[in-house]
């Protein structure tokens, strides 16, 4: 492959490094270099995704099976399964009718189909994975003993904490009741649990972002400038 030629690899490294620095200039302020890098990034990525969808989704999932199905009508044995492809194909064409001003309203039907099927499909998925699995794991004794009958204090405390947090969180997300009185106090405990969780998640994710930064610096200092090995 010509792209694996050392000259091209070096060229690619230089382009990537200069664009990295170009995007990083945004830290100072908006400037022509950033605008250029932004425009190139957006343009190339939009084009890339178009090509990617065309070759990896449209053709293998609709174009090729459709063609193969139609072909069986002429060279046999005839198969009819491909007819189901007419549904997404028609919906796709209806979506494109948005480009025709007088027929633009037709594009609302495939949109309605997408939103409707999403809501129906996700209802079951969320009910199973979020609600029921969570519920199932939340039902457990808050007092624990080991096989010899010894009370497991720390483990019991952990489970109690999780149970209280789950309850208080559910109180917070209860919309039919004003957060006042005892209900309000429990909901406030729920808020505390949420905020502590967010704090921990914040720290955890910042550490993840630091590793991304280190990765980029490693590219600049090792792959590009060869200052470190």
């Amino acid at each position: 492959m010509w792209m694996e030629h050392p000259g091209w690899v070096l060229f690619g490294t230089w382009v990537a490094a200069l664009f990295t620095l170009g995007i990083a200039t945004f830290l100072y302020k908006d400037n022509p270099v950033y605008k250029f890098c932004e425009a190139v990034f957006v343009g190339i990525s939009a084009g890339y995704w178009f090509v990617s969808y065309f070759w990896q989704t449209l053709l293998p999932k609709l174009g090729y099976p459709f063609y193969a199905g139609v072909k069986t009508m002429f060279v046999g044995p005839a198969e009819w399964g491909w007819l189901v492809l007419l549904i997404p194909g028609t919906l796709g064409v209806m979506m494109l009718l948005r480009l025709v001003p007088k027929a633009g309203w037709i594009a609302r039907w495939p949109l309605a189909f997408i939103v409707g099927y999403t809501a129906g499909l996700r209802l079951i998925t969320f009910l199973q994975s979020n609600a029921m699995t969570q519920l199932q794991n939340s039902v457990q004794p808050v007092v624990r003993y080991d096989a010899s009958g010894q009370f497991l204090g720390w483990e019991s405390f952990n489970i109690l904490l999780v149970t209280v947090g789950t309850f208080a969180g559910l109180f917070y997300f209860f919309f039919s009741q004003e957060h006042k009185g005892v209900f309000g106090r429990v909901a406030r405990v729920g808020t505390w649990f949420l905020m502590i969780t967010f704090g921990a998640a914040f720290g955890y994710t910042v550490m993840g972002r630091m590793s991304l930064l280190i990765g980029r610096l490693d590219f600049l200092l090792a792959d590009w400038l060869h200052l470190i090995r």
């Binding site: 519920l135 039902v139 007092v143 624990r144």
Partner: peptide, 28 residues
């Protein structure tokens, strides 16, 4: 729709409370 979801949350809270109480009583 929102009120109906709150009913679902009420069922969840009752189930967790009852299940946790039963398992805890078994332990004690």
């Amino acid at each position: 729709s929102l009120k109906g979801q709150d009913v679902g949350k009420s069922i969840a809270m009752l189930a967790i409370a009852a299940g946790t109480a039963l398992f805890t009583l078994n332990q004690i």
